[in-house]
């Protein structure tokens, strides 16, 4: 795959109270983002564990984003 066609799979871990709500609002506003970004809702980003990140990479994610 050449660089210009590479579309990374990104897992976005989002806090229920801020980033996830923002993503929800973005949807309501009909804003779009690449389908290669998968949002995972967390009750709080403090819930994020190194195991989640490792499992994401093991299962094929190219990157993870933590938003909270």
């Amino acid at each position: 795959m050449s660089d210009d066609t590479f579309e990374p799979e990104i897992l976005a871990f989002c806090c229920h109270y801020c980033a996830y709500a923002a993503a929800d609002l973005a949807g309501s506003m009909r804003l779009d983002y690449p389908s290669s970004i998968k949002v995972v809702e967390l009750p709080c980003t403090g819930k994020l564990d190194a195991r989640y990140a490792l499992r994401a990479f093991e299962d094929g994610a190219d990157g993870i984003m933590v938003a909270g």
Binding site: A50, R51, L54
Partner: peptide, 13 residues
């Protein structure tokens, strides 16, 4: 438990 999980995942990768 947590470390065993992380080590096994790390070794697999």
């Amino acid at each position: 438990t947590r470390e065993a999980d992380i080590v096994s995942t790390s070794l697999r990768m």
